[in-house]
Design a protein around this nucleic acid. Structure first.
Length: 205
DNA sequence: ATCAAGATTACCT
DNA sequence: GGTAATCTTGATA
């Protein structure tokens, strides 16, 4: 049951579409992270879309800079940024090359290796149920648990270090669509998506 | 050279 | 529910 190695990897075609579509369709897919020769599997539970052209909250709204240049690569790369002096956040780059769009990964349900994730997050093992949720129910928590930082910025998701595989396709009624978190500009766009009944979601409506 | 803002989190009341 | 922590980045001079 925990053998995701035979599941089909998401194609470049999947990523090279509009970020709002990709954000919704990433829900339920399984994020795979190779770390110290072990594979970590996590079900994607919460996402947000960002777009260069019509989204003032996007890092790319005012054009290309050294920081955001990875967002202009073709869909299917990982964009990692540093913020608030402490935190890394990971995004899936979407759309064609030179279009600065991406999907922020905000929540994941860990499916294996919880003790290692716990070490990375809290420097201990033996989790309460509450701490288990707190492992990966936020964008910076995911990166801390999976040791994702500047080194992972620009990774190609069609290769073997980090990738995403097919899994369940949630029913429409199991997906909540709402506004994005933690932004002031373009704050009314309904571009956040999460799995309604899943606990690994940062904020529920 | 200086400065304000930031796609967050943890901890407090 | 409110806020301090913490530092990189991009804009402006």
């Amino acid at each position: 049951m925990l053998d995701f190695s035979k599941k089909k990897r998401l194609s470049q075609k999947f990523y090279q579409r509009d970020s709002v579509i990709v954000a919704r369709e990433l829900l339920g897919k399984v994020f795979v992270r190779k770390l110290n020769n072990q594979l970590f599997y996590l079900k994607i539970t919460e996402t947000e879309a960002y777009r260069e052209k019509d989204d003032q909250a996007s890092h790319t709204f005012n054009g290309k800079t050294p920081r955001n240049s990875v967002m202009f690569l073709p869909g299917g790369h990982l964009y990692v940024y540093f913020t608030y002096g402490k935190h890394f956040c990971a995004n899936v780059v979407t759309g064609p090359e030179n279009q600065g769009d991406a999907v922020l990964l905000r929540g994941m349900e860990p499916l294996n290796n919880l003790e290692i994730l716990s070490q990375n997050r809290f420097s201990k093992t033996g989790l309460t149920n509450k701490e288990k949720i707190n492992l990966t129910n936020g964008p910076a928590k995911i990166c801390q648990a999976l040791n994702i930082n500047k080194n992972e910025n620009g990774i190609n998701l069609l290769q073997d270090e980090i990738f995403i595989v097919e899994n369940i396709n949630p029913d429409k009624e199991d997906i909540v669509t709402t506004t994005r978190i933690g932004i002031k500009k373009s704050a009314d766009l309904p571009w956040r998506f999460y799995l309604k009944d899943n606990p690994w979601v940062s904020v529920k409506v």
